[in-house]
Design a protein around this nucleic acid. Structure first.
Length: 804
RNA sequence: GCCGGGGUGGCGGAAUUGGUAGACGCGCACGACUCAAAAUCGUGUGAAGCAAUUCAUGCGGGUUCGAUUCCCGCCCCCGGCACCA
């Protein structure tokens, strides 16, 4: 019989579903629970090659973990709300609901075709009211606990998508999704207080088993800085300006202060003659977008207020300026400028002719003339502190000027309001008498009304504003007419806790039952892309910390371990895109080569964390390998082959057991490429032997093949006469004794260069090794007329003769 | 600019408590089978050289008996961040 994947794969997929190898009970006696989490797909379209890559390789791990005796759940769901899905629907002229549902049902088919053992009983869809009810519930609880608030802030407004974007969603001053230039608008928004957890989010990273780049990205995004708050009194005005600085050591070099245009003291310290000009400057600054500000990095603008402050370190009178390179949202919105030791202050001082006083002398070099000195050194021009190392002087100086220790973060609160249709309604009510009121918990879910006209509005109002019947209600407090909030939630809210729901997806009374959460959470391993290093991962960590803070969870980090997958590029080594015409259609490929080939090919392409480019010839090689396995088993299953010798038998066992060890270790480490090459080595050595193999060896080979090529393994397994599925089998144990080497090639080096090798039994002594080396013809010639200086012997590896 | 990841044959990639560089696969070449081709199987395959041997892990130094692996100084590619005081 010939290997025909299309004939066998569907059959087994149905069978597995029937016998439920993929659905995990909440508890199995004697087995440890393990929820293998992989990022759920976003339903703006169908699955592309990248999804197939991630899902099929994670499935290899899921199947392997089951075989090692764990109670594994490998759940999946669909992230279906949000702006990109809505935009795609509009483009395709379909209602977002119809569009996403259509995508979901197609994606489900695709997911089954890979042969992935997803735990369908736990499926989660974020557009299900029974799901987003808990978005609303979490929102209300956070509101009650002061973690959600409403504020009028300068928000990023995308004029094309007609909605506010979170800071994280703005890329180079443009909308991350559509590329349109983002404007600044002052809008009242619902905000989540992620900054409350800034320090926990920062410190919590340390204990996580995450890829280094992901950890660093988190820390950078949070941007923790330790520094001091220092007061500068203002001349002739009975008031002070507080600045935040991380460089208290340089305060003797502070030659001016700068306030952000939004600073509350601006009005008070503006001298009468300058009022007009300053007003104009502030207005202009407000109009600027982030992009324009960024373009000014090397050409700073600013204006003198006419007032002076007193430097508390040396009592010197220094001018106070206003400039928009100082951000109102960071620190105190005011800085002390030390142009001699800060690039930005240097640029500003040079442009406006302000004084530059160096206060740090570099150790072994001259102070640079045309740029600030940013390194460490000895203090100069610093009163009684001169001569100290600048780092050591920090604390002392801050004490002297009575600075207060303070820590600041780059992280900003999370704006979650979106003026778009396709999202979770925010469960708040506005009454002109009573103000903002939360919706009652018993009324949840507040369902998203079915709107015919769901297109965004131009004036920045949510389309839900048109749902008059839905919007207009009675105030729950005074019973007078009131209105619902018509904004919807950022879709990142949906995806920041979805994994909790996997523990108990149908629960009507809670986002998930406590006991069930305890059984599955926190997530031991989360597989996903590095594009989520900041947003998704930080939001999820935040929501979990918030639920923990409010007493709903007893852990505060959702993902103990995280592994990132690489990207699959087109055959031309470029990112796949329709415009480049290098897109590989995974469905076509499965049809042609079968799911097993595709899975194995993805595994073989390179390290999981690296990805690689699609190469049709490489896929061919894998199909060829699977064919070789198939044909080998067809021969073995046939009767009438002669028995094999004892020596051959040993070799067969040895290569098998080496593979059992190697493949197990490699799959655990997500190193599928080397796992597969080890399987190839095993078959290569097997095919050198002729005759009838032992049943146990043939079966063990299929067992270790089964996570990688599940359909073929099952087919051959059953063809050998087994009735129970191979995917209920245990991972075979290898024997140390069988894989241990008895002989090895002793490497003989002269001056560190390999000159000869000699087959040698394991464990020989240095003296024996020396003897072997000196008797070696090649070595004799090389060292005959030279003096031996030294001999280095590495047990069971090499001997190195150093001659002069 | 700052932060991160990477650079090994014609290609994807193996190998690190410093110890045989190039496992495994692709491609290529030759051979077998075939009327022929495809498929399959076998042999070879880093470069130079008839050979002994020499050179070779981005470049230049260093440490070491020995460096893809450690240290110093550069170059290039990819990704992220970007006035955060």
């Amino acid at each position: 019989m010939k290997y025909n994947p299309s004939k066998i794969e569907k059959k087994w997929q149905k069978h597995w579903e029937k016998i439920k190898i993929n659905s995990a009970k909440d508890e199995v006696k004697g087995k440890k629970n393990f929820m293998l989490l992989v990022e759920f797909p976003y339903s703006s379209g169908n699955l592309h090659v990248g999804h197939w890559y991630t899902y099929s390789l994670s499935d290899i791990l899921a199947r392997y973990l089951r075989m090692t005796g764990k109670n594994v759940s490998y759940p999946i769901g669909f992230d279906a709300f949000g702006l990109p899905a809505e935009n795609a629907a509009i483009k395709n002229n379909l209602h977002p609901s119809d569009w996403t549902k259509k995508n979901i049902s197609y994606m489900k088919e695709q997911l089954k075709r890979i042969g992935a053992t997803f735990d369908w009983n736990r499926e989660v869809q974020t557009i299900n009211p029974q799901y987003y009810k808990w978005n609303q519930w979490i929102f209300l609880k956070m509101y009650e606990n002061g973690l959600v608030y409403r504020d009028k802030t300068k928000a990023n407004w995308c004029p094309k998508d007609k909605t506010v974007l979170a800071n994280e969603q703005v890329v180079n001053g443009c909308c991350e999704r559509c590329g349109e230039r983002v404007e600044q608008r002052n809008i009242e928004q619902w905000m989540m207080k992620i900054t409350k957890f800034a320090d926990e989010l920062f410190e919590g990273v340390n204990q996580l088993d995450w890829p280094r780049p992901a950890k660093i990205a988190q820390r950078n995004w949070i941007g923790k800085s330790d520094g001091f708050l220092i007061n500068f009194s203002v001349e002739n005005i009975n008031d002070k300006i507080e600045v935040f600085t991380t460089r208290a050591d340089t305060i003797f070099g502070a030659t001016y202060l700068v306030l952000s245009p939004e600073h509350p003291m601006v009005e008070k310290i503006t001298s009468d003659g300058r009022r007009q000009a300053i007003k104009k400057y502030i207005q202009e600054a407000k109009r600027k977008t982030d992009l324009e500000r960024q373009q000014e990095i090397n050409n700073k603008t600013g204006i003198f207020t006419g007032s002076y402050a007193i430097n508390p370190a040396n009592r010197k009178k220094i001018p106070i300026w206003i400039a928009d390179y100082v951000l109102s949202s960071y620190g105190t919105g005011a800085i002390m400028a030390v142009p001699a030791h800060d690039q930005r202050d240097w640029d500003f001082a040079k442009k406006f002719g302000l004084e530059i006083i160096p206060v740090i002398q570099p150790k072994d070099e001259e102070l640079p003339r045309n740029k600030p000195f940013l390194g460490e050194g000895q203090l100069i021009n610093s009163g009684s502190f001169s001569g100290l190392e600048n780092k050591i002087a920090m604390e002392k100086i801050s004490l002297f000027i009575s600075g207060k220790k303070s820590t600041d973060y780059r992280l900003r609160d999370w704006i979650i309001s979106r003026q778009r249709y396709w999202g979770t309604p925010i469960p708040m009510i506005f009454c002109s008498k009573c103000g903002w009121l939360p919706e009652k918990e018993k009324n949840l879910p507040i369902k998203l009304p079915d709107l015919k006209n769901y297109l965004p509005t131009d004036e920045g109002k949510s389309p839900l504003d048109r749902a008059e019947n839905w919007k207009n209600i009675k105030c729950p407090n005074c019973n007078e007419p009131a209105e619902r909030e018509t904004d919807t939630m950022d879709t990142f809210v949906d995806s920041s806790w979805y994994f909790l729901r996997y523990a108990d997806p149908k629960n009507k009374n809670k986002f998930a039952d406590n006991k069930k959460i305890k059984k599955w959470m926190p997530i031991p391993l989360y597989v996903g892309g590095s594009e989520h290093n900041t947003m998704h991962l930080i939001y999820s960590r935040f929501i979990i910390k918030a639920l923990n803070y409010m007493g709903y969870l007893d852990f505060d980090e959702p993902f103990l371990a995280r592994r990132a997958h690489g990207m699959i590029l087109g055959p031309d080594n470029q990112k796949m895109s329709k415009s480049k015409g290098n897109v590989i259609d995974p469905d076509e490929e499965v049809k042609k080569s079968g799911a097993d080939s595709i899975r194995m090919y993805f595994g073989f392409i390179g390290p999981f964390s690296q990805g690689g480019s699609w190469n049709p010839q490489g896929l061919n090689g894998i199909s060829r390998f699977l064919n070789r396995i198939w044909n080998f088993y067809q021969e073995q299953i046939q009767e009438g082959q002669k028995p094999i010798s004892k020596k051959d038998e040993e070799e067969i066992k040895k290569s098998l057991h080496l593979s059992i060890k190697k493949i197990g270790e490699d799959i655990e480490n997500l190193e599928f490429n080397t796992a597969i090459s080890s399987l190839m080595e095993c078959l290569n050595s097997w095919q050198k032997v002729e005759g009838k193999f032992k049943k146990i060896d043939l079966e063990n080979f299929l067992r270790i093949l089964s996570p990688l090529a599940p359909h073929m393994a099952e087919e051959l397994w059953q063809a050998m006469g087994n009735k129970k599925s191979i995917h209920l089998e245990k991972w075979p144990k290898y024997s140390e004794k069988i894989i241990s080497r008895k002989n090895f090639d002793l490497v003989i080096q002269v001056n560190g260069k390999v000159r000869s090798k000699s087959p040698t039994p394991i464990g020989i002594s240095e003296d024996e090794a020396k003897k072997l080396a000196f008797e070696d013809g090649k070595i004799k010639k090389l060292i005959s007329d030279k003096k031996i200086k030294k001999i280095i012997f590495i047990k069971d590896k090499l001997i190195n003769i150093v001659v002069g």
